[in-house]
C-alpha cells in the first residue's frame, strides 16, 4: 500500500511536478531581489534536483543515482550555499540584486527562454520517453536562464550564482541520461565544482578589495 505512490506512472507524475517546481524556482531566482533569497532558492532547487535523482534512481532500479543524489544534497544544499553566504557576509556588499534589465522584464524574458528551450529540446535526438524530454527541456532552460542571469546582473557575486544555476541545468541533463558514470569521475567533477566556488569566492573578495565594489561594471579597463 505504501508503495502505491511509486508505480511507474506515479513516478512520472512526480517527476513532472518536480520539473515544474525546478523551473519555477529558476524563474524566481531571476526575479528575486535579495541575494540571500537567491542563495536559498538555489539550495531549494538543488534539493528538488536531488529528489529528481532519487526518483529516477528508484525507477531505474539502480543504486548509482542514490549516490549522486547524496552528493548533490550535501554539496549544493549545504556546502555551496553556506560558502556563498559566507562570502556575501564577508564582502559586505549591498544585499540587493542590481540588474541591467528590470526584474519583471527579466522574468518575462526567462519565460521566453524556457519556451525556446523546450522547443529546441525536440531537436536533440535523445530519443524518446516523456521523462527524458521533460528533463532535457528543464536542463536547457536552466542553462539559458543561468546564462541570462550572468549577462544581465551587475554584481560579480550574482555571476557566480548564475554559473551555478547553469551547472544545475547541466546536472539535470545528467539525470536525464541516467548516469552511470564511473564514480571517480563524478567525484572529480564534484570536487571541481566545490573548488570552483571557493576560487570564485576568493576572486569576488579580491575584486572587492581592489575596486572597493563588487559591481562588475567597474571592470572595464581592458579593451581592444
Amino acid at each position: 500500500m505504501s508503495l502505491d505512490i511509486l508505480t511507474p506512472e506515479r513516478i512520472s507524475q512526480w517527476i513532472g511536478f518536480l520539473v515544474a517546481i525546478a523551473l519555477i524556482t529558476g524563474v524566481l531566482m531571476v526575479g528575486c531581489r535579495r541575494l540571500q533569497e537567491m542563495i536559498r532558492l538555489f539550495a531549494f532547487q538543488s534539493f528538488v534536483l536531488a529528489l529528481l535523482t532519487l526518483l529516477t534512481g528508484f525507477s531505474a532500479h539502480s543504486l548509482h543515482p542514490y549516490f549522486a543524489a547524496g552528493i548533490t544534497f550535501f554539496g549544493k544544499c549545504f556546502l555551496i550555499p553556506y560558502f556563498l553566504t559566507y562570502v556575501m557576509n564577508h564582502v559586505q556588499m549591498r544585499r540587493e540584486v542590481e540588474t541591467v534589465v528590470s526584474l519583471p522584464t527579466s522574468m518575462l524574458l526567462s519565460g521566453g527562454l524556457i519556451m525556446m528551450a523546450f522547443y529546441f529540446s525536440h531537436f536533440i535526438p535523445i530519443s524518446g520517453t516523456d521523462l527524458l524530454s521533460k528533463l532535457l527541456g528543464l536542463s536547457i532552460s536552466l542553462v539559458l536562464i543561468g546564462l541570462f542571469m550572468m549577462m544581465t546582473r551587475k554584481k560579480a557575486f550574482t555571476e557566480v550564482i548564475g554559473l551555478y544555476l547553469m551547472e544545475n541545468g547541466v546536472y539535470t541533463l545528467t539525470i536525464a541520461t541516467i548516469f552511470e558514470m564511473p564514480a571517480i569521475i563524478e567525484m572529480g567533477i564534484f570536487l571541481d565544482l566545490v573548488i570552483g566556488v571557493l576560487v570564485m569566492g576568493v576572486w569576488v573578495y579580491r575584486i572587492k578589495q581592489t575596486f572597493d565594489t563588487v559591481n562588475i561594471e567597474e571592470l572595464r579597463k581592458l579593451k581592444g
Binding site: 542553462v143 560579480a156 554559473l163 547553469m166 547541466v170 570564485m200 571592470l219 579597463k221 581592458l222
Partner: peptide, 25 residues
C-alpha cells in the same frame, strides 16, 4: 593583484567556466 589583473582574472575565470559548462553538456 592590481585592478587590471583582477579584472582580467575575473573575466577569464567566468568566461572559461561558462564555456566549460557547455563542454560538459
Amino acid at each position: 593583484n592590481k585592478q587590471s589583473n583582477v579584472e582580467a582574472a575575473w573575466k577569464y575565470i567566468i568566461l572559461c567556466t561558462v564555456g566549460i559548462v557547455f563542454a560538459f553538456i
